[in-house]
Each structure stands twice: as structure tokens, then as C-alpha cells.
Simulated assay, not measured.
Amino acid sequence: MKSVIRTVLCLMLALAPGLAGAQATDSSDDKTVMFATDDPEMAVATAKALASLDEFLALAEAPPSGTDRFKLKVKVRDGNVTEHFWVIPFRRTETGFVGILANQPAEVHNVVLGQDIKFDRDDISDWGYTLDGRQVGSFTVCVMFKRMSKEEVDTMRDEYGFDC
């Protein structure tokens, strides 16, 4: 059976101001979009994010004026199921990274919304931040737009500053 990755996009916690994990959320705010593990568009988006990851991490360590909401998308495995989540905020550790899971899990059961999770570089699939209210990065979100309704995409563009 073909393995499936569930990529989770959370409209409220991953994009709205404030600390993720410190806010209550209604799970109806989360959008789950399914992709096959070998989806070519998602693979290109992930490769683009990973190719520029070092520059993003350097920027996140010394954020310039007008930037905020630095986030990483990481994969979490639970048996044969993999789900991707935004982690906001995050920080480097001696052995990798730690941060707060900013999405409600849909398929994996070994993590919960608001939990501190540890992960390493190999778990990262995307990154993003805002610059003067506009999204930078978040390459996988632009791929997800192709599977979302026009209304959802328009809302994301209008309210959260996506240009894709």
C-alpha cells in the first residue's frame, strides 16, 4: 500500500500573531491536506526550502527589523504514518532543535497541540516567516493552495500575506 504523508496547515496558530501553544484553538481551524510521499510538486517545494535552510536559520538567529513569526515545518512519525506540523517558536539546541507544535494532529497520536517537541535537521520540510506582514518561505503552503478552495486560498492571501 502506498504510504501517505498528511501535511497540516493551521490557519490560526501557525499564522496568527501570538505564541502558538499559549493559545486555545478550535481544531476546525486546522486544514489537513493529503499528499503521496512521492508527490512531485511537494518534493520540489521541500527541496527549495531545504536548499535555503541555512540562510533562514541564520536570519532567525538575528532577525532584522520588520520580521517575525519564524517557523519550521517538521515531520513527525507515528508507526507508518507521517504528518507535518509547524513548530512556533523554535530554537536550536546542542543536538538539534526544540519548539512548540502549532497544529492539531490529525493522524499521528504521539504528539499533541502545544507540546514541546525535539527534532533534528532531517525532520525539517519547510520554513517561513513574515516580513512587513507578508509571508516569506512556506513553500509547501503554496503547493497546498492547489488542493484548497478558492475561498480558503483568498483568505490565506488576504489575511496572512501569501503571494503565491
Rank of each mutant, 00 (worst) to 15 (best):
P89Y: 05
L53N: 08
G66I: 10
F97S: 02
R91L: 07
T67L: 09
K71T: 15
G99Y: 04
E83C: 08
F90P: 00
G79A: 08
D68S: 13
D78E: 11
T82P: 00
H109E: 13
E94C: 00
N103V: 07
D54T: 10
T67Y: 09
I100N: 04
F70T: 01
T93P: 06
E55G: 12
R91K: 15
K73M: 11
F97V: 00
T93F: 04
S52F: 05
P63Y: 09
P105G: 04
K75V: 14
F85C: 05
R92I: 05
G79E: 08
F70Q: 01
N103W: 02
A60H: 08
K75H: 10
D78R: 05
Q104K: 09
V98M: 11
V81W: 00
E83W: 04
P89D: 05
S65R: 12
D78F: 11
V87H: 01
I88T: 11
P105N: 02
L101Y: 03
L72K: 02
I88N: 03
N80Q: 13
V76E: 04
G99D: 04
E94D: 15
G79R: 02
F90M: 04
E61A: 15
R91D: 13
T95M: 03
R69T: 09
V76H: 01
F70D: 00
V76A: 06
P89E: 06
F85Q: 01
P63K: 07
H84N: 10
G66T: 09
G99M: 03
S65L: 12
D54Y: 04
V74S: 01
W86S: 10
A51W: 08
V74T: 11
H109V: 07
V76N: 02
S52Y: 08
L53E: 08
T93K: 05
E94S: 14
A51Q: 13
K71D: 07
L57K: 04
T95I: 10
V98P: 02
F97E: 04
T82E: 14
N80G: 10
D68H: 14
L101F: 07
K73L: 10
F85G: 00
L59G: 03
V76C: 05
E107G: 03
A106L: 09
R77T: 13
V87W: 02
P63D: 08
L101N: 02
F56H: 02
L57M: 13
K71H: 09
L57T: 08
A60Q: 07
R69E: 13
T82Q: 11
P64W: 07
G96W: 02
L101Q: 03
N103L: 03
F97L: 02
H109A: 12
F56G: 01
R91H: 12
E94V: 11
V81R: 12
A58L: 11
E83K: 05
G79C: 07
G66D: 10
Q104A: 11
L101V: 12
V74E: 01
D78K: 06
E83T: 10
R77N: 14
V98Y: 00
P105R: 01
G96C: 04
